[in-house]
């Protein structure tokens, strides 16, 4: 018969984490909720406006455009980085000195701070002095990311792909290395093609790391701020103004604390829903195993 546990003192060990989370997350979120229902003029002057800021934010065309851009950017990033990351992981050497060298080379972009990445690409893509910008123009393509929205978009996308595809590649590389040799031996006995090995052995075994990779990349790209801010400043016009930048302009630039708080919470709810969907997917995968 199972004995009932009467000593629950171990719960006290969770207390420091609870206090830390309360100070770093719960109290700030409560404050943002409080701000989102008030029109705040200064520290002592605030008027209750109910759900007015939420209504205004949800019907604000500029912010809805930013939201659309943000989703488009995140899905574009995933559509490029995931297949590319898998492809890089598949061709990376697995043994010998070259394995270590390629790992270091692939990991380099991940070590560069976000603002430095933005600065590198800002100079690299300039049509007058940047190697990339100059080369593209030399090919006869009119490329100027400071005046052409399409060029600005492509540059931001390219920069993100350059910066973050290595993360997917390294995750997939570790996933591929975890596949036992016996699987490949069985495939060789069956004379399976490279495609069949990828389709029936490698890809299914990469599922768990890919879910984590997609989650990380979606979350990170959905909250992108520094790189496009440094590269394009959100322009030309508002063509590369993503949610974080729109929010920062509203909260700090215009000091519209109430509307910014309401929009932050809408933003938070989107991130929360996507996180929950991925968390559920990971749990389902674990259960399936």
């Amino acid at each position: 018969m199972q004995r009932k546990v009467r000593d629950n003192k171990a719960w006290f060990l969770v207390l420091p984490v609870f206090i830390l989370v309360a100070f770093s997350a719960i109290v700030p979120i409560m404050t943002v909720v409080n701000y989102s229902v008030q029109d705040i003029f200064d520290q002592n002057t605030a008027y209750f406006v109910g759900a007015e800021w939420y209504r205004e934010m949800l019907r604000n065309p500029a912010l809805l455009d930013s939201l659309g851009r943000q989703f488009f950017f995140s899905f574009s990033v995933l559509a490029i980085e995931v297949p590319l990351g898998i492809a890089i992981a598949l061709v990376m050497p697995t043994k010998g000195r070259m394995a270590a060298v390629s790992l270091i080379l692939v990991a380099i972009p991940l070590l560069i701070p976000w603002n430095v990445v933005g600065t590198i690409w800002q100079i690299f893509s300039r049509a007058d002095i940047g190697l990339f910008g100059y080369a593209v123009n030399a090919l006869g393509i009119d490329y100027n990311y400071t005046s052409d929205p399409t060029a600005a978009w492509l540059t931001v996308l390219l920069m993100d792909v350059w910066h973050w595809t290595p993360l997917i590649a390294l995750l997939c590389y570790s996933g591929l290395r975890a596949i036992p040799e016996a699987f490949y031996q069985a495939a060789r006995i069956d004379r399976a093609s490279k495609w069949a090995i990828f389709r029936h052995i490698q890809l299914p075994r990469l599922k768990s790391v890919l879910v984590i990779g997609v989650l990380l990349r979606f979350m990170d790209s959905f909250m992108i701020y520094t790189e496009p801010f440094v590269l394009t400043g959100g322009g030309p016009g508002n063509s590369t103004t993503f949610l974080s930048q729109a929010l920062t302009q509203m909260a700090i630039g215009q000091f519209d604390i109430g509307p910014a708080a309401a929009f932050s919470l809408i933003y938070y709810l989107i991130v929360l829903l996507v996180c929950y969907a991925f968390f559920t997917a990971i749990n389902q995968l674990d259960k399936a195993k």
Partner: peptide
């Protein structure tokens, strides 16, 4: 006071 509480949000969180 710095958390700018209102009756509605206090009720909501309660």
């Amino acid at each position: 006071n710095w958390m700018a509480w209102t009756g509605v949000t206090a009720t909501f969180f309660s």
